[in-house]
Amino acid sequence: MNVTRRILIAAAVLITAACGGSQPEQPVPQTQPTTPTVNADSVRRAQEEAERRRREADSLAAAQRDAAARAAAAATAAARAEAERAFANQVHFDYDKSDIRAEDQAILDWKVRLLQANGSMTIRISGHADDRGSDEYNLALGNRRAAAAKRYLVSKGITEDRITTDSFGEERPLDTAGNEAAWAANRRAEFTITAGPATWTIPTP
């Protein structure tokens, strides 16, 4: 009987416990839709994740493309700058002379290739002299030097009307030291592009 009572009490406790416990479990039906919601979220999250990865991949690719493009542009710009530098290379002359020196021919030959590769390009050649001689004669001498450089380019097939010449005589020295080295630096022909295509076709050096 004692055992029976204990079982009954235990059952009653269980029942009450079960009843008492069922009270807070009222929202269970509410939690029932929670499980599908969680699933939807994770799907969305997965989709977002995938999307993010895709975008990341895309932007990476884009960045890589950009970088490549930038590198290419930089390379082009560098090549252009290099070409402009090479184009601006001056030729120099002996005292009171206007002959193109043998060692300067390569400098002019490169300009010939650039002009041949860029048919719309026109240039100006400016002749200069050191400050010996007379002020006036040096204008003529500068003119003769510019004309000699032009003649060389024309002899290599560049049409005359693409090249204008002028002379500054001794009026624009690069070096005013008044010694042999300064004079040698000042006896020069300078080259300027007067018109040309936006993008240059750059010949191999």
């Binding site: 006036e136 204008l139 003529a140 003119n143 003769r144 032009k150 090249i163 010449t165 002379s167």
Partner: peptide
């Protein structure tokens, strides 16, 4: 072009000078 070293004739009626261009001076 570039025009240098002008001089008047003694009677003042003419001017001579040197002209520099691609053909020389």
């Amino acid at each position: 072009d570039l025009n240098i070293t002008p001089t008047f004739s003694p009677d003042g009626t003419k001017l001579l000078w040197a002209r520099s261009n691609g053909d020389g001076t």
